[in-house]
Amino acid sequence: MMNTKVKILSALKSVYDPELNINVVDLGLIYNIEITESNDVTITMTLTTPGCPLHDSITSGVRYSVEGLEETGKVEVNLVWEPAWSPDKMTPEGLRLLGR
């Protein structure tokens, strides 16, 4: 299970916010990854702002990237606005890419 989670996180690192050119993991958009016994995955995530024009593209990209893994079954993306995204959710690498 732990191994699958690592692979999912690695796959998610290939999904970039095209405006910021930072992946969704380093941006701190991924809140939770749940894996069932049958390897179905539910990803809870947010976006930097509720009115993000890349709303559909990023959430679809997250789903596609995880669906592409051999270890996973059904993938569901659960987009939430609470708790709201804030900069402290970013990784040091994400902040570095923003010039911080």
Binding site: P18, P53, D56, S57, I58, G61, V62, Y64, S65, G68
Partner: peptide, 22 residues
Amino acid sequence: PFLWWTYKYSKEIGKNKVPSLK
């Protein structure tokens, strides 16, 4: 660029490498 990116690459994100808007 955003409109064209959405048209051309929104279905590719997560599957293949896509360009940034910049």
